[in-house]
Design a protein around this nucleic acid. Structure first.
Lengths: 335, 335
DNA sequence: TTGCGATGATAAATCGATTTATCATAGGAT
DNA sequence: ATCCTATGATAAATCGATTTATCATCGCAA
């Protein structure tokens, strides 16, 4: 490998000078001629700075970890895209991690940080993690931003405007004439779940619609959990004419169960799901969704971590506002 | 941060001795008493070795990159799980990367390696990448294993036994009485696509069934591409009674298009898809799939990269054999 | 002519772990 | 008593980039 001293030698300058030129140090004093010679030498030799040496010296890696419960989940691609774009524009790298590993190996994050591999962590807690567990996951002084889950506490957090999303879904269904609207939510322990459920309750209240405990479930965001929720709901004595599902994955399960019972969507029951992903358009019928600003969430998380000015902050991504994507899973109630 | 010399000081030994003890150097000569003192000191101080310093000195990072076209894809979770488990058992770390970045920034991988951030790369080429492009992506001497795509050439490769998987799907459909079986494949440029198509052709030939160019498409593995393929196929003069779809994502699109045309699965047309993922069970009807040994593929890739003995190798994961998961998208032909 | 500030560049220390080359000391053999 | 060999441990070099402290040199003012 070509190293800095090789470049310096070829340019006929000291490593010190070469270093300053190449790292774009603005306070440096070098003649334009030398600067050019260094740049040329670096290019000719295909110089790439050694990351270990640099970060040993500077004690920073210019690398952030983005740790999420499930990289294969719907919400993830956009989130990662937003985070990576923002990171790239700031000259940072991002490494992906699956937070399932936190369950298997509780020290994983602490070790990652302790080894000095990363400068900070963007963490989405596994669904259903009690907020209290957060404490034990990270060291006191690790720069960390928790996204998409808790919205207060001793570390910085950023969340989506879940309430606005839920309200949008409800408004759509009410606009179609629905009164009996059920809610299929996340795990009761999780903070997102609680927020979305609260939003559902308050929006229903505002509209003067009945909120029945019978029409609410809290089994989780995964497809199988959504299906289990549908089973529970559809076996009640009375069944709502429309459902708000807090996650598109769960909605797939709901759809499967509805089909299995020979009911029809939207004729018998309408469905709106949170998060707009490609396969919302590939189900039958295609699912009406609420598109949330995930990309902006990712970018904001990077920004919050780097512009670590004000200590602990709690942010809500309000813009762009959630957006309804109408497909074919919603229609007016039957009667 | 606690460093090695702190541990050494507390244990009353030199950093040299502490280093050997902690890194488990078996050739070391230290008394049992000293070893204990070092271990205790390290534990008491919560010592974590600095990664930058270590890898600067040793010129290795004990980290591999796993780069795939789409981390949110069906096949990925298992693949990553297998790779991570194998890596963990060897004391290696894995960082995830999205190979879409290769398109945006062709130097990305080269830089990653050049900076010395990783010791090797497990790479799945973006679908449809001409194998020739591989050359330009990596440096001559980067340890690399290409998975799931090309199966020969100047770098080591590992592939699934696509032929066996396709054959299994065809056998199932033939067993149900189908003769007219279509094939919805990957992009024509891609090596996987070519392999699976070849397998389809030869298995059909062996069974003495007609292979019609009209019943084959090669538009890609994504959901929308599967749907486009279905459009193409269903507008032919004659339509097959069953379809083998080379990827479950594409199968979702196929299913959507079939529904949109008011055809019924499996009454009008049967479907088998490659790769078994949770949502195969959440579609309507649930899709019959072929489960491929993805976990083993991931593990084998790590092993191949690390046990870099024989130079370039070309491996096929034959065990466990592909496995048919029968659901409700297949039945006998109508008439 | 001497002195001083600005300018351009460099020597050398530093980051923390690993490893090579050495060094004591004790015990055994001659 | 002397020499030699294990044994246990350490000093110091090293990895490559960054940065602090220093050093020449030139131009200009006193």
């Amino acid at each position: 490998m070509v190293k800095l001293s090789d470049v310096a030698a070829r340019a006929g300058v000291s490593p010190a000078a070469a270093s300053r030129v190449l790292s774009g140090d603005s306070t440096v004093r070098v003649s334009e001629a030398t600067r050019q010679r260094v740049m040329v030498a670096a290019r000719e030799l295909d110089y790439v700075p050694n990351h270990a040496a640099r970060s040993l010296r500077t004690a920073r890696t210019r690398t952030l970890a983005l740790v999420v419960p499930d990289v294969t989940s719907a919400v993830f691609a956009e989130l990662a895209g937003g985070a990576e774009a923002e990171a790239a524009s700031r000259g940072l790298a991002i490494v992906l991690g699956r937070s399932e590993r936190l369950r298997e190996d509780g020290d994983w994050l602490r070790r990652l940080v302790g080894e000095g591999r990363i400068d900070g962590v963007i963490l989405q807690l596994p669904d259903g993690t009690p907020p209290a567990d957060l404490q034990s996951l990270v060291m006191q002084d690790t720069p960390i931003v928790v996204i998409n889950s808790v919205d207060d506490g001793p570390v910085s957090t950023i969340v989506l405007d879940d309430a606005a999303g839920i309200r949008l879904a409800l408004d759509h269904l009410r606009g179609l004439g629905h009164h009996d609207i059920g809610f299929i939510g996340g795990l009761p322990g999780s903070a997102t779940g609680a927020r979305r459920e609260a939003a559902y309750r308050s929006a229903m209240d505002e509209a003067g619609l009945p909120v029945s405990g019978e029409w609410m479930t809290a089994l989780g965001y995964a497809g199988t959990e959504g299906r289990a929720a549908a089973v529970e709901l559809l076996e009640r004595a009375s069944v709502p004419t429309a459902l708000v599902v807090a996650n598109l994955n769960a909605a797939l399960g709901v759809l499967a169960e509805i089909h299995a019972r020979n009911l029809r969507v939207p004729a018998d029951i309408s469905i709106v799901a949170m998060h707009d992903v490609w396969y919302a358009d590939a189900t039958w019928p295609p699912i009406t969704t609420v598109r949330m600003p995930l990309r902006e969430l990712g970018a904001a998380a990077v920004a919050a971590l780097v512009d670590d000015t004000a200590g602990v902050t709690h942010e809500v991504i309000a813009s762009p506002a959630p957006q309804l994507v109408v497909r074919q899973s919603t229609a007016g109630p039957r009667e």
